[in-house]
């Protein structure tokens, strides 16, 4: 049975799980690192040749790929590092000011 964690930055020590155990897996997805960005990648679907080179290079798992096709960028978590724009062989990702 999955125990729902209900600990926030405002929680007191009494609400903290024993041993600091995190009972949910992958819940960092609820934390939005997208607001770190000062620059953002913009995907141009017409120029994209679906080589998927942008997918493995993303440190923030923010290239959305569904059924083997690039479908866009997850701006909730993308920190705007610009690596995807740099590696794209077809210049299909612009890197612009937020």
């Amino acid at each position: 049975m999955k125990k729902k964690m209900n600990v926030t930055a405002e929680s007191s020590w009494k609400e903290v799980t024993p041993g600091g155990v995190i009972t949910e897996s992958g819940n960092a997805g609820d934390f939005r690192t997208g607001d770190w960005r000062s620059m953002k990648p913009v995907w141009n679907s017409e120029k994209c040749k679906q080589c998927l080179m942008c997918f493995p290079v993303c440190p923030d798992s923010s290239i959305k790929v569904c059924n083997g096709k690039m479908e866009g960028i997850d701006y909730d978590h993308c920190k705007g590092c610009g690596i995807c724009a740099k590696v794209c062989p077809f210049d299909a990702i612009d890197f612009v000011e937020e």
Binding site: A28, T33, W36, V57
Partner: peptide
């Protein structure tokens, strides 16, 4: 490469590594 994109993502976004860090790329 395309086939590997269909595997489940085991490291989510929303971690606090620096923008452009190499480590999560390796881990993923």
């Amino acid at each position: 490469l395309k086939a590997t994109t269909e595997k489940p993502e085991r490291l989510t976004g929303g971690h606090r590594m620096c923008a452009g860090c190499g480590a999560p790329i390796v881990v993923r």
